[in-house]
């Protein structure tokens, strides 16, 4: 942390800031942040997408504002200012969702307001936007937000298929499908999250092994 303060901020616009959030530093599957909405509202694909997009909106907007004000905000009150900014955009998004669909608002319930305390957002404001240029902060927010949405969708789809036998509200099975009640309840969120983490870590390990094998054979070292 102390080192970061003295580092020169990166000024060049880098697409890597966008891509890292999608996969390498995915907020859910790698950083394991913001678990509350991840486990609670992913009981259907639509809910997952709506929650993901709402979070992305807040993330991008707060990153933009924090980054553009980063030279003005005294560091003693920075957290208070960030929270103020984040809470504002959460309130905005809550009204917008209500205007778009009352049913969606009902399904997401209190979790829209709880975006305020999603640590991904404050985390990005503090760790990235407060030290980087506006363009890079925008890309970082967008990447992290979409990565978050992707993760929520991964959970939402699995839980909706098993829990209600549908995908985005479209029935997949003939009448008389036995729904797995646990999958719609928060408990199912834990199971699905665990399964996805297992899968992604297995994938990563396999890639690492392959790369190691490639570099070994490439350099001719036994």
């Amino acid at each position: 942390m102390a080192n970061d303060l003295f580092k020169m901020p990166e000024t060049a616009v880098s697409t890597d800031e966008f891509i890292k959030g999608l996969w390498r530093e995915n907020p859910v599957f790698v950083q394991v942040l913001g678990m509350c909405p991840v486990l609670a509202v992913t009981n259907s694909g639509i809910n997952a997408i709506a929650m993901g997009l709402a979070t992305t909106f807040v993330l991008v907007m707060s990153n933009i504002l924090v980054s553009s004000l980063r030279k003005v905000i005294p560091k003693q009150v920075r957290i208070a200012t960030y929270i103020l900014i984040i809470a504002t955009f959460v309130t905005v998004v809550e009204y917008l969702i209500q205007a778009i669909s009352l049913d969606l608002h009902k399904a997401l319930g209190a979790f829209i307001s709880l975006i305020v305390v999603n640590c991904v957002i404050l985390g990005r404001a503090e760790a990235f936007a407060s030290k980087n240029t506006l363009a890079n902060s925008f890309l970082d927010g967008l990447g992290m937000g979409l990565g978050f949405t992707f993760a929520l969708l991964c959970l939402g789809v699995v839980r909706e298929i098993l829990g209600s036998g549908t995908i985005f509200g479209i029935g997949l099975f003939p009448d008389g499908f036995q729904s797995w009640v646990v999958m719609i309840l928060p408990g199912g969120g834990f199971f699905t999250m665990g399964a996805w983490l297992l899968f992604f870590n297995w994938l990563k390990e396999r890639n690492k092994k392959r790369e190691a094998a490639l570099s070994e054979s490439g350099t001719g070292v036994k």
Binding site: G165, F173, P174, G176, F177, Q178
Partner: peptide
């Protein structure tokens, strides 16, 4: 003998 994924009767 319910078909997999179907509700038992």
């Amino acid at each position: 003998l319910t078909v997999p994924f179907m509700e038992p009767v």
